[in-house]
Design a protein around this nucleic acid. Sequence first.
DNA 1: GAATGTTTTGAAATCGTTTTCAAGACCGCT
DNA 2: AGCGGTCTTGAAAACGATTTCAAAACATTC
Lengths: 343, 343
Amino acid sequence: MQHGPRRPAKVTIHDVARVAGTSPSTVSRVLTGRANVRAQKREAVLRAIDELGYAPNLLARGLKTRLTYTLGLLINDIQSPFFSGAAKGAQDYAVRQGYGILLCDTGEELSLQKASLEMLRAKKVDGVIFVPTSGAEDLLPPLWEEEANLVQIDRQIEGLPISSVVVNDEEASYQAVSHLIANGYRDIAILAFEESVTTHNRRLQGYQRALDEAGISLSRTLVWRGKTSSEEGYRLTRDLLRCKPRPDALFATSSRLGVGALRAIRDAGLVIGRDIGVVVFDDIPAFSLLQPSISAIRQPAYEIGWKAAELLIRAIEAEEPLPPTQIVLPAELVIRESSAPRV
Amino acid sequence: MQHGPRRPAKVTIHDVARVAGTSPSTVSRVLTGRANVRAQKREAVLRAIDELGYAPNLLARGLKTRLTYTLGLLINDIQSPFFSGAAKGAQDYAVRQGYGILLCDTGEELSLQKASLEMLRAKKVDGVIFVPTSGAEDLLPPLWEEEANLVQIDRQIEGLPISSVVVNDEEASYQAVSHLIANGYRDIAILAFEESVTTHNRRLQGYQRALDEAGISLSRTLVWRGKTSSEEGYRLTRDLLRCKPRPDALFATSSRLGVGALRAIRDAGLVIGRDIGVVVFDDIPAFSLLQPSISAIRQPAYEIGWKAAELLIRAIEAEEPLPPTQIVLPAELVIRESSAPRV
DNA sequence: GAATGTTTTGAAATCGTTTTCAAGACCGCT
DNA sequence: AGCGGTCTTGAAAACGATTTCAAAACATTC
């Protein structure tokens, strides 16, 4: 393998200056391009940079300029298609703008979130995209005062002046449930996250509005709440199917809950889309592969991440503080076989 | 909302020193704990730190100590369950050891990989976990000379003294194909990545060994290569099913190829596990949900990431350079319905 | 060619830490 | 009290960039 000419292990701006026959100041000037330097010198500098394989030390630069070109990304579970989509969107936009992304996967654990935010603060990231957990409000002030910019995604902390990129949870849920009703389903159960998270609350509201509008009175026995895991989805659904009268449709407000529900329905010997209608909030690849395929609300995860990064970088690079912005992207109901019209 | 006492926007080690009635040197000593300081002063310092909400600036520290406590993670696609599993494993271990992770999702694009590696170099990461693409050898030397530690995952660049964490591709594939043979399948087609990547080459070798051992002569017409996307899997499989005689089984060497293949098989009106046996390398959640469920080789993605981070951090923290280590983790064949015995 | 104005340039200060070095404090001994 | 030896401490020099400031170089005009 060709290793090229031996180079000094560490080459600094001083080395470049020496080789180019000028001073570090001038090298810095051509590096940042923020002042004019005579063409002849500029070229000498560029030649030296090239020859030495010099790359500026971003730690040193960041120390001086207070800009690290690094964003923090605090999410709940990189393994979930929604979050990994958002992560990809954020990273794609960020990298295009010359920023790097520090990934923090914290689950719903507040202590890990706290530790991660402290790390991000110590590393002097320029901004943070995060998924707020209930209780996270108290973790923000330190970062906040450190003049870091913040954007929340997926969920929102109410009443805090922080930008956010979310989805129209209420409306999309309303449409999903209305769709079930239109297809002849009446006793529609809902599976939701037990903790009070904006996202799930709004999904619940949309559910309720659709029922109200159809003149169906909401029955307490149709609302099931638990952790948002597939095991929990299984348990809840199993119990729910034992109720008499048995619900004829199910709206799961997260893909994990939905996956558990599907298993439980099968194990109960019921046929999805005939014995029971199903719609899930959050589409995952498996849903289109399954037979019958599962109707789901598709969230634009990639765009959410992308927009969040865009908002964040705009705020970072703005001359003066920008007022917080709320972006609501449309989630789209993808109708498949699991919510076919009742016969 | 409670904002707590107003604090100076930026508090440095000098502020702490002033409040504690001592010098920055001493504060630094209690911070790093690498020298003894009289109990009384230490406490004064700790009180001041607490009172001011001081946290050391890791940029400044890194500049001095040449340690950033940051790792780079260079992967192909965070949206793939395999890579997101590995990312989670790596991040979980790293965060436990006080390291942060800079995420670079580059796809198979060499130019993006180059740019990302340069960024990681400029940010002075302590080490990098990466998935080598063919051609990536040339990108390494700069990092390499910069005394950054490297660990490759999933694939390997042959003949380079770099640690790696991979899976027993050859053996697992051998077992998968042997399993098909044992269940009565004879004309077993294989779908593989067209580019010469160690992973896929070894999977091909395992396939071949299983056939050899069973005395089945390998037919050129059963080996299909293309990009590793589900569209390509669909196209290849569609064409393959038109061959006469039609293969009676299919081994897909990536989950994307597998997903495409499943669609094509369905569209051809064939029943998986009866008309044609299927095993896929790399298990994804959908496979266990499908009916019939799909046999697959489960890779310990999380452990791969975890081990890679462990290896990397050990190398970083070692007094002297460690010799490169190869870790091979077992991938496990999960037998489901798609490879049921022929009747 | 001198006077003036405009670019280009380099020296030195700075960002916030750690670390070296030498001085100061403290100890136990004779 | 004086002396040799540890322990603790603070001043100052890094780390590798940017930026301010004033001097030096050049251009322009009379």
